[in-house]
Design a protein around this nucleic acid. Sequence first.
DNA 1: CGTGGAGTTGAATACGATCAACACCGGTGG
DNA 2: CCACCGGTGTTGATCGTATTCAACTCCACG
Lengths: 195, 195
Amino acid sequence: MTVFKKYLQDHTPITDEQFEQLSREVTPRSYPKGRILVKPGDTSDNGYFVSKGLLRAYATDEKGKEHIIQFAPENWWIGDRGAMYFGEPATFYVDVVEDAEVVVVNRNFMDRAQEICPAYARYNIYLLHNTARHMQQRIASLLAATAEERYLSFIHMYPNVMLRVPQLMVASYLGITPETLSRVRKELARKNFGK
Amino acid sequence: MTVFKKYLQDHTPITDEQFEQLSREVTPRSYPKGRILVKPGDTSDNGYFVSKGLLRAYATDEKGKEHIIQFAPENWWIGDRGAMYFGEPATFYVDVVEDAEVVVVNRNFMDRAQEICPAYARYNIYLLHNTARHMQQRIASLLAATAEERYLSFIHMYPNVMLRVPQLMVASYLGITPETLSRVRKELARKNFGK
DNA sequence: CGTGGAGTTGAATACGATCAACACCGGTGG
DNA sequence: CCACCGGTGTTGATCGTATTCAACTCCACG
């Protein structure tokens, strides 16, 4: 919870009193690795702020293969947007990759936050533009780049995540199989052997 | 411009006076098919509302191949988010697919719109969540679905766009070559021949 | 210990890309 | 009015990248 407060204070001029009001709308929770917080079909409007640990969102195809949409380490938000914001049944899973402490918020929190603290609305818009921009770039990279290029740009963009999740999840995020990622890494090691 | 006014009125309770103020910040323009409005490296903060016609945003790879990020028919917004909102050099092209009438807005417009009309901030957030949700689904589909599945979901989601742009642009949007799309269509026609 | 998940490697396969040829317009200019 | 032209779409043959399936190693964890 203190992490959450610090996060808010870092990004928006929120008073202690305002935080008090807001914190009534949220519930801090701890979840162990492997716990599934959201699954397709769920109709909860929960969103999750990660204070500690690492979460992921993923979809599964008809063959049961997982495809990772997003990782969320400390100070990130995660959730199924359709469910959180639009009240639709969720289409993704959200689960815990590393034992996590999260702050659970619901739709009401987001509305209240904007009333209570107008500056929060501005920051929220900033955040949304930012995620939109990153998703655009990811789309561009899925359309244009090879497996190797995508891998390099991933380790450049999210070096910490890269070190904290198993390789098969990185592969799933990149849209390739674990075997292919293994070979890509081998090939890169070979290339860079002569420095 | 009347299209733009109607668009705003449809989505937010804006008064004529407020619209007057806002319209000072924007400039309506007409552009012919083929005109390039933004190219990588540009540092303008222009965004475009499409009143008529059809625009697209695309990136090019080192081989000069185009990869379409987004189509924007009537009543859609388009622009390079990094340039519009973050003041970075653009990374995408924006050009005109069908002779278009657009309303050009800049960063200042977006800030002013929120001051002048608080309800606009709410609608803007809604819009951002919506585009984020759609981009997430597109990412999921690029990760999980075959060429054929992506094509079917595209014509289901954007039937009008599908009819208005050349096939090679649809292919580019789907992340496949025009040849492959042609074969996918042929195969679908064969399958559905027996109804 | 031993068990199961993660990572690696190999061989065969499949899907889409590439290269090339050609048909089909729609527009332009002679 | 027609000949020409460039861009679009189709089809075929070949190629390449990543997938699939399988076997094996290596740990972390019970």
